[in-house]
Design a binder for these strands. Structure first.
Lengths: 148, 148
DNA sequence: AATCATGTATTTAATTTGAATACAACGTAT
DNA sequence: ATACGTTGTATTCAAATTAAATACATGATT
């Protein structure tokens, strides 16, 4: 089991739009870098747009960030692309037997822990911004040039 | 997308074995409380056994905890039932384009964040034990009796 | 020997994912 | 205004995962 790559593709899209801000980031251009098909990109772009992270217009080529990259966290992306529903990262077995002490209490008992775990994960994502990733990528690239 | 219920069922199994320690916890008995079929229970029991959390013997009815419940964390269960592979909670899109600045750096750039997020989640699970859940369930039941 | 439990393999249906195709709606350029 | 390229959206397809279900070999007890 794994969280859909829509999330990491979403990050990829936003970072590339920022680094290509002087160019035109069409769905085909983005798809080339991600190495997938433009339909998937457009689908994800639609989600990012709906969440207010990018601006796109039908018929006009190219997407732009709707906010400064410093104000877009990975958590924003995570929620935008809807990979994990609220409090449903962990699935709980349905209909445990109510005649059993454990069966009738287990869900209420573990749900808070599971929610806390999920929140801890989300908090980490909330502390990293698109700007951080952009900077890191530029930095990594500098190192590569030095080496070569 | 959701993490397999094997995890929460695993917790259910361990808690029930503990609370039924004076009785015999056969796979059929456990299946009754979880409200699923005994095969799934045995499959999960096999994983818990392999991880050294319970003791079961072929042909002999009933499972016992292999450790005191205080020494079994939810993280132990989580790892035992193998719901999420190491560092693979998030899936990353394969083969981004190496000719693109973003494409050739994005994976190395976001992997540490994703790992940190996953570790934060696991840390929360590591801080809760089966004993905690057992105590909580007993407590909840007391309240219910008071109310009724 | 008969019975019951565990352990394991296999099949099935349901769900999700990503890839792919098709096409309507929209804007721009000629 | 016509043609072309782009976005937006619906639909189909194959692959993977999950849980349910069945079957049966292995082991232990009576």
């Amino acid at each position: 089991m794994s969280i859909s790559s829509r999330f990491t593709v979403g990050i990829h899209i936003l970072v590339l739009i920022e680094l290509n801000k002087k160019g035109i980031s069409s769905s085909e251009f983005l798809a080339g870098s991600v190495n997938t098909n433009p339909t998937l990109i457009r689908k994800i772009m639609g989600m990012l747009k709906k969440a207010g992270l990018i601006e796109v217009q039908p018929g006009i080529a190219g997407a732009k960030l709707a906010k400064e990259p410093f104000f877009i966290t990975l958590l924003d992306v995570y929620k935008a692309v809807d990979v994990v529903k609220e409090k449903e990262l962990f699935s709980v077995h349905e209909n445990p037997h109510p005649d059993c002490l454990v069966g009738r209490n287990i869900q209420d008992s573990i749900t808070p822990v599971l929610s806390a775990a999920q929140l801890a994960l989300e908090k980490v994502l909330g502390n990293v911004t698109i700007k951080d990733i952009v900077k890191d990528i530029v930095e990594k690239e500098k190192c590569k040039i030095k080496i070569n």
